[in-house]
């Protein structure tokens, strides 16, 4: 063992910075917050008070935490479903070699990913404003009912979902495009020779062969969406106060609730428990997805 370590000392040293930083800034906070979730944190100079599983048990009967789970799941379900369908359609269209200017389109759809969301949120607030917003102006022009898209609890979450789709659809599209390029051209050629139409090719060749990539995109998007934080945080930063859950808590994602309990209410032990429950939920859902569809998507080894 020792001689082996001696032999590989140099490579280990080269990769050491990552592990040192990982341990200091990722692993230790993870372990510490688990410890913290079993404590009640009252003050800075007051010793932590061990309360066992009390924080976790309190969560079960906390109506706002349960509500935050409903908001998070609703957001994730609609945002991921619509976004993935759109991303697949966009990828299929932009993969057409005959499409003129397709690189320009790819760039345009990718723009939201590299745009600072602070800037984008400001633009969306103006677009969706109930008085001077472009969206309501268009609706007024065609004599349709206007709404307070970001202030009305009924429309706030759908607006948030739309913004989430706008922000991430380009990113997923690029991943899917890369997947499309890996499908051998001969398959398409032979299908055409056999007389298959375009739609038939898409459903019988492209989508089945793209499934591993689509599955990857779904799993990663679900993980990302369950951690929903930036969008509601920034959109409500100046309206209901930073970290607010939006109108009547309609945008209260679990991560926002975690922020409220930790950074606004100062209940750091409870916030850690919220964080751990969210982590377990994400792990469970990811595992469920992999167990259900993983084999078909080439995750057979798991």
């Amino acid at each position: 063992m020792r001689s082996k370590l001696g032999k590989y000392r140099t490579p280990y040293l080269f990769i050491a910075p990552f592990f040192v930083l990982f341990a200091a800034f990722v692993l230790s906070p993870i372990v510490y917050s688990l410890w913290l979730s079993l404590q009640e944190v009252v003050g800075i100079y007051v010793p932590l008070q061990f309360v066992g599983l009390k924080n976790y048990l309190d969560l079960v009967s906390d109506p706002r935490f349960l509500h935050s789970l409903v908001v998070t799941f609703t957001y994730t379900f609609f945002q991921v479903t619509i976004m993935v369908v759109l991303a697949v359609i966009l990828a299929l269209i932009l993969d057409q070699r005959t499409l003129r200017g397709r690189n320009v389109y790819r760039l345009v759809f990718f723009f939201p990913v590299i745009t600072s969301f602070i800037v984008a949120a400001m633009v969306f607030k103006l677009l969706l404003d109930k008085e001077i917003g472009l969206f309501n102006m268009l609706l007024r022009a065609v004599h349709m009912r206007t709404h307070a898209w970001l202030e009305d609890p009924t429309y706030a979450l759908p607006s948030l979902i739309t913004i989430g789709i706008w922000r991430w659809v380009g990113y997923q599209m690029v991943i899917l495009l890369a997947g499309l390029q890996n499908i051998p051209a001969e398959l398409y050629d032979s299908a055409r020779v056999d007389g298959a139409g375009s739609l038939r090719i898409v459903f019988r060749i492209t989508l089945p062969l793209l499934f591993p990539v689509i599955f990857f995109v779904i799993v990663m998007s679900v993980i990302g969406s369950l951690q929903l934080f930036d969008e509601p945080f920034i959109l409500n930063m100046h309206g209901g106060g930073a970290g607010s859950g939006g109108p009547a808590d309609s945008m209260l994602s679990t991560a926002i609730y975690l922020y409220q309990t930790g950074f606004l209410d100062f209940r750091l032990g409870y916030a850690s428990a919220v964080g751990y429950v969210l982590t377990v939920v994400i792990l469970a859902i990811s595992l469920l997805q992999i167990l259900t569809f993983g084999k078909r998507a080439g995750f057979a080894e798991i």
Binding site: K125, L126, D129, E131, A148, E151, H238, G239
Partner: peptide
């Protein structure tokens, strides 16, 4: 009363 005018530059437009 206009409900929820944010304290940010978008409010100046209104």
């Amino acid at each position: 009363i206009y409900y929820k005018l944010p304290w940010d530059p978008s409010s100046y437009e209104l």
